[in-house]
């Protein structure tokens, strides 16, 4: 089936054969198409890493900036033009390591953007060093005595920040990945989806089977609107819960709070400066 977000010509994809990123791309293409978004209004924003190359493989506008710095750019893009659908993509190193501070503050701001983190528990592009989500004991050419730091729990962190949409999926389940992606994009407010993704080249520990064995779908009847319950759920590890762990409609978005949109919803680029008003402002200094 033709997908409006896929290129007509074959794309030269730089990922390793068998990498989980391919399933994520498949899910994202399907999610975008099924949401029926206007292609010219979608902007993908990313940093640097294997995951962060995603924008090059989807036919949309994109801002592929610096390692770790996708979120500030994405926040500003949405703030300057709320008509755009802004999706940030990155790896666990990119978003939880280098860009960690921006994640905290995106949680505070609550821009209406979506963040997909390809969590392979390793630095893929730089060839296999530990990442903030690497499990203890994992040996790498740098962590030669094994990782001993406590891994970051992005789900618990996001719920603590009251990020209004917090989910985790395993990319091998393309159907669930796609469905959660659609809900995340449709959710008004900041949405974080942590996507478990095997890195077949550099993570020989957290392989497909490990993720299969160490994840469990949220039970039927699970209530994602109960923040305390969601927080408790997010603390569960091995198996890690899969699905929408927390969802809330209680927070106003960053853009909704911006004074510039209180009376006028048009994007900033369409507006003209009122030079008469500027002149009056200057004359106020007389």
């Amino acid at each position: 089936m033709e997908n409006a977000f896929d290129f007509a010509d074959k794309v030269d994809i730089a990922w390793c054969p068998g990498c989980g990123n391919f399933s994520i791309r498949q899910a994202l293409l399907a999610a975008l198409a099924e949401l029926d978004l206007a292609r010219e209004n979608v902007v993908l924003v990313s940093g640097i890493g294997q995951a962060a190359k995603m924008p090059h493989y989807i036919d949309t506008s994109f801002f592929n900036g610096l390692h770790g710095r996708g979120l500030p750019a994405a926040t500003a893009i949405k703030a300057c033009n709320p008509e755009l659908t802004v999706i940030a993509v990155g790896g666990d190193g990119d978003m939880y390591g280098e860009g960690g501070n921006h994640l905290l503050h995106a949680g505070r701001r609550n821009p209406d953007i979506t963040l997909f983190v390809h969590d392979n528990m390793v630095y893929g592009l730089t060839k296999g060093q530990a990442s903030p989500t690497s499990r203890p004991g994992m040996e790498t050419p740098v962590q030669v005595f094994g990782v001993f730091e406590k891994p970051l729990n992005p789900m618990a962190l996001a719920i603590a920040l009251d990020v209004p949409f917090v989910a985790r999926v395993f990319c091998a389940d393309v159907e669930q990945t796609k469905e959660v992606m659609k809900k995340a994009i449709a959710h008004k407010g900041f949405a974080l989806v942590d996507i478990f993704q095997p890195c077949v080249s550099f993570n020989k520990t957290n392989i497909f089977k490990w993720f299969k064995d160490n994840t469990a779908y949220l039970p039927d009847g699970y209530d994602p609107s109960d923040r305390a319950g969601a927080f408790k759920k997010s603390l569960e590890e091995e198996p890690f819960p899969l699905g929408i762990i927390y969802q809330s409609d209680q927070r106003a978005t960053f853009e909704d709070n911006l004074e510039v949109y209180k009376k006028d919803r048009t994007p900033l680029y369409t507006r003209e400066v009122d030079m008469k008003k500027v002149e009056a402002e200057i004359m106020a200094k007389v």
Binding site: P72, A76, C80, P267, L268
Partner: peptide, 18 residues
């Protein structure tokens, strides 16, 4: 949150036409 965020936000803003 910090100056690194500042400059990246500013670039995002110009990208979107501000």
């Amino acid at each position: 949150e910090d100056e690194i965020g500042v400059v990246n936000m500013a670039l995002g803003a110009w990208y979107a036409g501000a």
